[in-house]
Design a protein around this nucleic acid. Structure first.
Lengths: 199, 199, 199, 199
DNA sequence: GATTAAGCGAGACGGTACGTCGCGTCTTCCA
DNA sequence: TGGAAGACGCGACGTACCGTCTCGCTTAATC
């Protein structure tokens, strides 16, 4: 499975950082169109081969660029827990709305989505390394609410996560409606209504 | 509105049909990667210029290819209405699940989504000419259910549409979970729970 | 041989003139590169078909444009004849030098040469309708000089014409040397020296 | 001299040779019309960019193809010198007549002439790298004849070169007369008559 | 300390597709 | 029915990137 790739110990971390930095800058400043391997290599002052040596393609570079930017020293993501699931979800979804509105965050992510749609291997990686941990954190918080009796014991928590986030993502990607705090709040209310105790 | 484009009266409808047909065939048989303007032109037996004359780019061609395939002589889409909103929505969402599973339907649509993410003008067109009418049909059916007392009078119907469809679309695009009739049913149940009368 | 072409009686002379005029203007003002059938038709306010109906190609149009500009009502060209062949040839060659220096004359002619090199049929037409009569006029004048004893009776007059004009044309086309009145004079002197009486 | 172009040290000589070879083959076998950058690239098994990287255009490629075919290891061209200028020039002009009659030689050259007429930069290159050295060789031989008293000391040798070659080239390009050994001989005789000693 | 085997910057290479231009043919509609 | 207009199938243009490759050069690990 491995052994065939190059020795990571020999990798130049300086080049890696410059590549990921250049990727973020390009996509933020000049849009998706400007994002080519050649442009990344040129801006990073790096040979193209150095990119192809460590990543299978443009999508993987963008993915790592996003991961590197969001790097969490603690290693584990957790949603806030004030004991009030309603307020906590509102906080989190409002934060997500704010991120979608910020090009520094959303431009690379949108570029990543484009690649995800056409590259199943990359999509699997995305689910495993980004979507998975995030969903797990959300599920943990919802399980806490469940234990606290704020959510029905039989509620389908995976579905609740979908109800909370899919509409948000869809509006961001397609612009099918306003994407503001009010929408975040209504989404939280609706999702919790669907999952409230006593069915 | 424009007046700058070429005279549509001079357009050769035979070429138009062959282009849209070729587009559907290419994307269904050989995937997104095979979908280039050159490939479409070659398969359709048409000059590239004939494509560029009538469409601004690949995305617009794919869009028209999808619209032409779904062309409804009646002109107006309507959801089934048996009087039972729960059953009707299950029917419709199960049908959507089936469509997503059918490459003839889903392959061109996925190609369209890729273009939508990078082309705001195309996205606006998509919302106006495809997403809009579909959403309107869904809203009509939900309003009927509201009048019949199956949905709360104060329910936010736009939000209900999002709750029903966004999770479906997301699972289709990213593969974040199983996409089957059971999921459709649970989605309908959850959305209706969030909107049921008496808050 | 004919009968297949369109009836010349029905031809619109106004269109013809505008096409030839547009051809001259384009090549003079914007160079060879600007000379396309499409550009001629557009500038002349004429349909492309009208050009293709009456000319086989771009070269033939340029040829007619040049012929029309040099149209001689008398129909017959004649070199000056003062009785002094030396002076007369100098006059004529100096005039040719001046023409080559004038873009209004030389730009269309250069465009014609380009076509001549790649189109044998056009070249044949050129020899018959332009080069032939001109050479004939030159030969007439040389024969007069022969009769007057200024040129050897056995001189090869065709060759003399070549000696006089080919170097001129070559310098004009390739820029292989200065092209001025002094060169014209030296050319005349040399050609006459090669043909002078008493061998 | 430039410094702006790509590093010639990195150039693949194998590709260069195949491009020039393909150019000669195309123009000889299929005529000028078949000579497109795309056709050259295809026949040479080379990317188009590899041509555009090293040559500014089709004309320059043809030029190099001709130069490469005529490559002289000695580096310096010289006309035969038997001591008899008349005989030597006849030999050389007869050889030129033969070359013009041989498509392997004349087809690429004719293609080059077409380009020369429309590209001043290429024409300058042609004069410097092909016409110049050839003319210089001819002048050397004529100077030898001058020293031997076969040509007048005051003769304008540049003009003699023009008298010898321009009529030949003109007949070849335009077909304005027979182009055979007899014509070559007459040309030599006339030019030498114009330059013979004692005026 | 010398050797050696990566990684690396650079960029040429064979390709594919781009979006544009002009070709010569055709069709439509007007005078 | 000639002509203005221009759509059409086609082929070539010159450019942008793709992913692979081949160069010297550093640079770290091994002898």
């Amino acid at each position: 499975m491995d052994g065939t790739g190059p020795d990571p110990g020999r990798r130049n971390p300086r080049s890696r950082d410059r590549i990921l930095q250049a990727t973020r800058e390009l996509v933020t400043d000049h849009g998706f169109g400007a994002l080519s391997i050649e442009a990344i290599a040129a801006r990073a002052g790096v040979g193209k081969q150095t990119i192809y040596r460590w990543w299978p393609g443009k999508g993987a570079v963008v993915f790592d660029a996003i991961l590197a930017a969001n790097e969490n020293p603690a290693g584990r993501i957790d949603l806030p827990d004030t004991g009030d699931i309603d307020a906590d979800l509102r906080t989190v979804l409002r934060a997500t709305v704010a991120e979608f509105a910020d090009p520094v965050f959303s431009a690379p992510l949108r570029a990543l989505y484009v690649e995800l749609l056409t590259d199943p291997a990359l999509a699997a990686d995305y689910r495993a390394r980004l979507e998975g941990p995030m969903t797990e954190a959300k599920l943990r918080r919802l399980r806490g609410a469940q234990a606290a009796g704020q959510i029905d014991d039989d509620a389908d928590l995976d579905l609740v996560v979908d109800l909370l986030y899919a509409p948000l993502t869809q509006r961001w990607l397609l612009g099918t409606g306003p994407l503001d705090e009010e929408f975040a709040d209504r989404l939280v209310a609706a999702a919790l209504r669907a999952a409230r105790p006593g069915q």
